[in-house]
Design a protein around this nucleic acid. Structure first.
Length: 645
RNA sequence: GGGGACGUAGCUCAAUCGGUUAGAGUACCGGCCUGUCACGCCGGUGGUUGCGGGUUCGAGUCCCGUCGUCCUCGCCA
């Protein structure tokens, strides 16, 4: 046995209990706080597992600086705390370690982030010093939860015979959908890989290959603008299975989610989740991701509107639009000011106005009252709106899609403002987890700007009618009317994931491409390999992918996925810690055959903070790199005039 | 690309109608303190008010531009 002292820990900072009293232990961790009372010196040592109080003898305390966030190895004897010394707020509060030797493993300046939890640091500072932010117990809890959740899900899929199979990160650009991230090829000048928006084609080909059941924790990349619930790169639990249809996918996921919620959180989900066709979701809630935790459903007033004297309502219906509304119970005391604010919101979304009526058999009040003068008309409208005396009805009259959209948004707003979402009885309350499947999304959506149809889900989605309403036989169907076999999983107003029954027939797949305006030559170039695969023994198959960032955030009660991603980017797609993206050496561009063309920076916008660091400039930021619009190109190759010269 | 909010000490914030030397809490440093655990008490250091212009006798405050952060619309098959 060696007597050599060592810094290596014998216990974690969350481990010691009164049963350890008397033991000689070594703890490793960060200095969380110091309390020097003169003759006695306390120090809290922190690691992922908890906080332990260390008593520092005067001799040690005076001989070595132990600053905040210093990393220490403390050897000492576990001592019981008695009476008022016991701290019941901490798991380790019954004991403390009397230090006999302290080794400073690492020092630190005072941290830019408050780790005691007393003040909330700006997200900007948190992202810049993410390594310190991630020391916070809240962030460690979030990442631990994410890890447990994903691992539970892995076990659940494995238990059902799914194989975890990796697919390429460097792959082929996809023509439709989100913007691709491109990666230039060094070996093939002028050619590019794309990062996958999802493993879609690969997982379908795995089905063609007979793997039968696939899943993967898959990173996906989409070069679109960020949001609180969207990052450039995000993680999906992606899966696909053969010889199945919708209900097989649903029941697989329901049992996986049941097991996952049970294992990771001790929550028993209520199964099965309700199923709802897209059309029903839109008609009842105005959105394709309804929050089922509260009512306030949309009511159709089209029949009433048809025969009323209000010209706006009548013309909306007669021109093919809708008149629909929400009924807010009288007990909520919706004020004129509230209605004015809601109208502004509605107009912001595109509504021309917001009609309202305070319901009453005697005609009620508000702008619509004069059209409800007869008790017959008033009663009919109350019936259509499910309104009682004194309730406030809010109406939108417009084309169908806009009417639903506006009312769906108003419903969600009112749900928050009127506090309609019931207070949960803790996370184990099944009423808090209102999952629903939304099925039969439209197959195509009209894009007004591009003047053509796009796939609502993706072009590999099976149509509800395999004949495509006769299109396969050469007829011309109304593409806007076709229904698909795509589905979403929705939880409390969030879209957690989506999937579909896929097209496994080459002829149908080719027809879909044609209907989307992708001609035979383009099909061959972009999807030839895929259609060929479908033609060589493809089984019927279906799949789904669950957004893990959203799901883990939601299951922690958080509304921003940054809180469950170790190294997220800002709303402008910047990694503040690494300062990515950044310029690269001209030689690197030459090597991948890329010439960089950027607008010349205006004199005022020359970066000051990043371009003039106190450290000497490095090779990656040559003085010329920010002053010329072209890097890695010979002078004279400038394709655009420089307005600054 | 559009809209809104914000940017002041390491951190979180204040600063009246444009008016004295830009303050507070916290952190940090020093002193005192033997049972604290957000220790306490006393003292101190710490500021290009994001950056650049402009208006003004005078700008943290008003105007223009710009950069950054957040939310959001477009966008996200």
């Amino acid at each position: 046995m060696t007597q050599q002292p060592t810094w290596r820990r014998t216990h974690t900072c969350g481990e010691l209990r009164p049963t350890h009293v008397g033991a000689i232990v070594t703890l490793n961790g960060w200095v969380q706080a110091r309390r020097n009372l003169g003759g006695i010196y306390f120090l809290d040592l922190r690691d992922r597992y908890g906080l332990t109080q260390v008593v520092i003898p005067e001799a040690i305390g005076e001989s070595v600086k132990l600053g905040p966030e210093y990393v220490l190895s403390v050897r000492g004897k576990v001592s019981a705390r008695v009476g008022s010394q016991i701290n019941n707020e901490r798991a380790t509060g019954g004991v403390e370690v009397i230090a006999e030797a302290v080794e400073v493993l690492s020092s630190s300046p005072p941290p830019p982030i408050d780790l005691s939890g007393s003040t909330e640091t700006s997200i900007e500072t948190r992202l810049k010093y993410r390594y310190i932010d991630l020391r916070r117990p809240a962030m460690q809890r979030n990442l631990a939860h994410r890890s447990r959740f994903i691992n539970a899900m892995r076990r659940a899929f494995e238990a059902q015979g799914f194989l975890e199979i990796e697919t390429p990160i460097l792959t082929k650009a996809t023509p439709e959908g989100a913007r691709d991230f491109l990666v230039p090829s060094r070996v093939h000048p002028g050619e590019f890989y794309a990062l996958p928006q999802s493993p879609q084609i690969f997982k379908q080909i795995l089905m063609v290959a007979g793997l039968d059941r696939y899943f993967q924790v898959a990173r996906c990349f989409r070069d679109e603008d960020l949001r609180a619930d969207r990052q450039l790169e995000f993680t999906q639990l992606d899966m696909e299975m053969s010889f199945v249809e919708e209900e097989d996918v649903f029941s697989t996921w329901e049992s996986v989610l049941r097991d996952t919620f049970r294992d990771a959180m001790g929550i028993e989900l209520a199964l099965p989740f309700p199923r709802m066709r897209w059309e029903e979701a839109m008609e009842r809630f105005g959105v394709d991701k309804p929050d089922l935790r509260f009512g306030l459903e949309l009511h159709a007033a089209d029949e009433w509107a048809k025969s009323c004297e209000f010209q706006v309502f009548r013309s909306a219906v007669s021109s093919g639009g809708r008149v629909m509304g929400l009924t807010v119970a009288a007990s909520h005391n919706l004020s004129r000011k509230d209605i004015t604010e809601l109208e502004a919101l509605a107009k912001g979304i595109g509504a021309k106005g917001l009609a309202w009526w305070k319901a009453g058999v005697a005609g009620g009040s508000g702008p619509l009252a004069k059209f409800c003068a007869t008790s017959e008309a008033a009663r009919a409208l109350m019936a259509a709106m499910g309104a009682a005396e004194g309730d406030t009805c809010l109406f939108i009259a417009d084309r169908k899609s806009l009417t639903r959209k506006v009312l769906g948004e108003l419903r969600n707003q009112l749900g928050r403002r009127l506090d309609l979402i019931p207070k949960s009885n803790g996370p184990t309350d099944p009423a808090q987890w209102r999952f629903t499947w939304v099925t039969h999304f439209p197959l195509f959506e009209w894009d007004e700007d591009a003047r053509r149809y796009f796939s609502a889900h993706h072009p590999f989605t099976a149509p509800e009618d395999w004949s495509l309403d006769g299109a396969l036989e050469g007829k011309e169907p109304d593409l806007g009317q076709l229904s698909s076999r795509a589905y979403d999983l929705v939880l409390n107003g969030w879209e957690l994931g989506s999937g579909s029954v896929r097209i496994h027939r080459a002829d149908v797949q080719q027809k879909i491409f044609s209907l989307l305006g992708i001609g035979p030559e383009e099909q061959q170039r972009k999807f030839g390999f895929f259609v060929e695969a479908l033609s060589q023994g493809a089984p019927p198959h279906a799949g789904f992918a669950l957004g893990l960032d959203r799901t883990t955030a939601l299951t922690l009660g958080l509304d921003n996925i940054r809180e469950v991603i170790a190294f997220p980017k800002t709303a402008s797609a910047v990694d503040l810690m690494c300062d990515a993206p950044s310029q690269v050496d001209p030689e690197q561009l030459v090597e991948v055959h890329v010439r960089c063309v950027v607008p010349a920076p205006s004199p005022d916008s020359t970066p000051t903070a990043s371009a003039t660091p106190s450290a000497p400039p490095t090779a990656s930021a040559p003085p010329t790199a920010s002053a010329t619009p072209i890097t890695g190109a010979p002078p004279g190759a400038m394709p655009t005039p420089n307005p600054a010269r």
